[in-house]
Amino acid sequence: MSTPAPPLLQASGLRKRYRLRSAGAVRQITAVDDVSIQLVPGQTLAIVGESGCGKSTLAKLVTQLETADAGELVFDGRPISIRSRSERLRFSRDVQMVFQDPYGSLTPHFRVGSLVAEPLSVHRLASATAVRKRVAEILSSVGLGPEIAGRFPHELSGGQRQRVSIARAIATRPRLIVCDEPVSALDVSVRSQIVNLLLDLQRDLGLSYLFISHDLALVDHIADTVCVMYLGRIVEQAPAAVFFAAPRHPYSRALMSSSPVPDPRRRNNAPAVQGEVEAGAISTGCRFRNRCPLAVDRCAQSDPPLDPVAPGHLVACHRAEELGTRALWTAQLG
């Protein structure tokens, strides 16, 4: 490895709480709890986890759709304060987002041409006369013909809509795109088309992706670095090659063995973990301990910090050191 490039985006200590009203009582849910991430230019950081782990909230904090209760965002060496409109505008030009649901994320009464032109006019990037040409260029770079500009979203297929979403996101020539489950709502035969498009755009435009997903096989295919989140915390962070070869956290391990492999010769015999994610079930110690097959007394006493076990590989587990040896895994998990 050469000297690491300076990060494009550095988020440190992000925290977000929501108040929930249920049955008259007000509960506080910490959706994102002290999360720090770093994005390298031109690379993909994948955030993996199940619903309720805080990955979508993290995406909204990074794109400034929501304001963090605590923590700091530094983009390209400059701390981001969202107080002024002009600064927010400048930030949103560099950081764009692609949403999960291509049916819901395109304004239904806009034609495709207006949808793609919108970021150009918000950021005053093209004169009125140049807009049409620029829109056609952007559409062609996501594999759509110019004739599609006159259509409404409901006249397009799911894959075409997601291409339009991506076209809107790249219109401002951003440097970072936050992708929140960008292919999971699409049909299987269309998914790989969109994945290929995202890979092409990354290579051609030097984009960084913050890629939110629950699909480990997909993450394995596209990510440079993987972060696993559980109940608002990052529990493991590692380069993709390291992570998929030898995950250290018991939850990462459970996620991996729960993902259904499309190969009948490799059937899982038993589910890797029992129970479900319960926000607020655990107030002290490790949040995963009620489902963890390897929990010991220590796990109930203190919350394990996210510590390095190898260069670039961080794990929040009291037993991370022991788990580096395979013997324990095979003995306890099979």
């Binding site: 759709l65 927010r88 949103s92 987002m97 395109l106 304004t107 009464h109 809107r168």
Partner: peptide
Amino acid sequence: DADFVQAARSLGASDLRVLALHIFPR
């Protein structure tokens, strides 16, 4: 809180623009 409104906000659209162009026509 609809997705398309979030999408417009994430593009950098102002409150007024979102209200007038994305929400009001609905």
